[in-house]
């Protein structure tokens, strides 16, 4: 009755709400945890102590070099056709403006195609993207590539409609990438409301002038750590089931949802296994990644360091899409491994969470999946996730302890059973 014991302890027993309470303590104490910030390093040190005090094994920090970007003060003011202070959030890795800012006319587009059609009008202007929200993977391209595409046609800055499924005038930040050979221009996200208003104004033939000021600065890479803890396997200790979430966040809100919840249900999985006195045949390894938001920097360096042992990894798991009510897991691997995972998920019938979907989500575990290691991510109710993602609204207020209990139970049952089965998951 091991699966039932895990579920009972996590959802109904003395461990219920523990991951929520632990997360609240960390994020209320430390705040958001941007790559390169003192907050992130404080969080890593606190987690190192927490994992040791929890009695987990082989608790250690693995050094990583990570980007250091700071946003500084920033503002955007529409001056024409009327004065209007706009809420903005500069995008990670963006350069700043000159100290006096950039004042320029706006060119509004709804797509990259429209930008290319209007290329002759773009020189010297601030490109405002008012792209519709289709889905995160589709629409995020405007945040990531918006500055580069605008700079290619001679724009002096870009302002991008936040990649958000719902808005109450909330700007959403995130990472953006420059391209070699293309001038770097300042870039920030504006609210859905302002993007739509500016687009309406432009469609009426209004001339729009915006004054943008950003103090953003990029600094040399800095030292950080992936945080690791284990329950060592009893029979095949060199073989691993990796359970993970990322400890860093953006510098707004508390990073409670992205990805505090994922990191803390991963820790909770090991705590639950330990509380029940269980020791699986192979090692369950917790990794709390650093600098995921900058493109899986900590995970990339972990993979480079450990890929020589990839044949010893039975399953890599990551929760980085919220810890709301789970519906199942997403799985990447062979059909035979998928059939086994369906059997594993059938153990979660008491919670009615048994589905195995395709297409694992997880920047940090993709390196392993590409190398042929089976991967799994938590699949949950995403209906509100992208309303809060990368915004000031990502706080403990959006978290639900009961849903975290259930997510932790799913995570613990899957990781324990796969780690304890006699054979590793088949790969081809």
């Amino acid at each position: 009755d091991i699966a039932k014991a895990i579920i009972d302890l996590a959802v109904y027993g003395k461990s219920q709400n523990r991951s929520y309470d632990r997360l609240g303590l960390l994020v209320d104490t430390v705040g958001p945890r941007l790559s390169g910030s003192k907050n992130l390093e404080n969080a890593i040190q606190i987690m190192y102590q927490n994992l040791q005090q929890n009695g987990l094994e082989n608790v250690h920090l693995e050094p990583v070099k990570i980007p250091h970007w700071e946003r500084g003060e920033e503002s955007a003011m529409m001056l024409v056709p009327r004065v209007h202070k706009m809420a903005i959030l500069g995008l990670g890795s963006s350069i700043g403006t000159p100290p006096e800012g950039i004042m320029a006319e706006a060119l509004v587009v709804t797509s990259f195609d429209e930008l290319r059609r209007k290329a002759p009008e773009a020189r010297g202007k601030i490109v405002v993207y008012n792209q519709p929200y289709i889905s995160y993977p589709v629409t995020v391209q405007y945040r990531v590539r918006g500055a580069v595409e605008a700079a290619k046609v001679g724009a002096v800055a870009s302002l991008i409609r936040s990649v958000a499924s719902f808005s109450i005038y909330s700007p959403h930040t995130g990472f953006q990438e420059y391209q070699d050979g293309v001038p770097k221009i300042p870039t920030a996200c504006i609210t859905v409301e302002d993007a739509e208003m500016i687009a309406r104004m432009a469609s009426r033939g209004n001339r729009i002038v915006i004054h943008l000021k950003m103090d953003a600065k990029n600094y040399p890479d800095t030292s950080s750590f992936n945080t690791v803890a284990e329950i060592t396997g009893s029979k095949y200790p060199e073989q691993v089931v990796l359970v993970s979430g990322h400890l860093d966040s953006w510098d707004v809100g508390q990073g409670a949802m992205d990805d505090g919840g994922g990191a803390f249900i991963s820790w909770e999985a090991l705590s639950l296994i330990k509380d029940l006195g269980l020791r699986p045949k192979r090692t369950v390894r917790l990794v709390l990644w650093t600098a995921e938001e900058q493109g899986g920097i900590g995970a990339s360096q972990y993979f480079q360091l450990h890929k020589v042992n990839s044949s010893n990894y039975s399953l890599v798991m990551e929760s980085d899409s919220g810890t709301f009510l789970p519906t199942g897991i997403q799985f990447s691997g062979s059909e035979k491994a998928r059939a086994i995972m369906k059997e594993v998920m059938s153990l979660l019938k008491p919670l009615n969470i048994t589905q195995v979907f395709s297409g694992t989500e997880g920047t940090d575990i993709n390196f392993w999946i590409q190398a042929g290691v089976p991967g799994a991510s938590l699949c949950d109710d995403l209906s509100t996730y992208f309303a809060f993602h990368h915004s000031h609204g990502d706080t403990m207020t959006v978290m639900d302890p009961k849903k975290m209990n259930i997510a932790a139970a799913v995570w613990a049952v899957v990781s324990y059973v796969v780690a304890d089965m006699e054979e590793m998951l088949p790969r081809t």
Binding site: I2, I340, V344, S346, V417, M424, R427, T428
Partner: peptide, 24 residues
């Protein structure tokens, strides 16, 4: 011991199913 198998037979899969069911 092979650390992971590239393939499993129907008979082996039945044993794995039974093994997993024992956790339920």
């Amino acid at each position: 011991k092979a650390i992971f198998k590239d393939d499993i037979s129907q008979e082996t899969f039945q044993k794995i199913k039974e093994e997993i069911a024992s956790y339920g």
